[in-house]
Design a protein around this nucleic acid. Structure first.
Length: 138
DNA sequence: GCCAACGTTGGC
DNA sequence: GCCAACGTTGGC
């Protein structure tokens, strides 16, 4: 079982849009590293949903519904999509500020590689974020 | 709105 | 193959 984090600008596609739709084809990825991460996703993997630019917080948990296949929005065979389903919103969103302040998350790709839009998360990092989401005071 | 980080492109 | 120029992302 693997863990991931995907970013979305809420103006473009928010967690609420995702929940309303019921599932999402994660298209438009045009970065090789992000693409490689999409290809490594397995059905049932856990995915954190992060709002970039506006919000700057982890807002929900999703799961991989369908593994990588060619991106239907382009003829270019290099790019792929996956399909994701929303599982549940976080009780309390976990902000970038909280993540930066927590030394257990010093190595998280979200901080170390701020421009990457699809990234792997370590199981322990996933657990830390979930615990932060349940804790009113941190 | 600005700028740092970083990926991509293209000239040589 | 190197590197300067340029474009994009995303935090502040």
């Amino acid at each position: 079982m693997n863990y991931w984090l995907v970013k979305s600008e809420p103006f473009v596609y928010s967690w609420n849009d995702f929940v309303t739709a019921g599932k999402s084809v994660w298209d438009g990825v045009r970065n090789y590293q992000a693409r490689n991460n999409l290809q490594a996703m397995k059905e049932g993997d856990w995915v954190l949903f992060y709002h970039s630019n506006e919000g700057m917080e982890v807002v929900g948990i999703a799961q991989v519904l369908k593994e990588a296949y060619p991106d239907p929005t382009t003829d270019d065979p290099r790019w792929v999509v996956v399909e994701l389903v929303p599982v549940q919103p976080l009780a309390k969103p976990v902000t970038l500020k909280q993540i930066k302040a927590d030394n257990r998350l010093d190595q998280i790709a979200l901080i170390r590689q701020s421009r990457l839009s699809v990234m792997p998360i370590r199981p322990e990092e996933f657990d830390v974020i979930l615990s932060l989401s349940q804790n009113e005071s941190t």
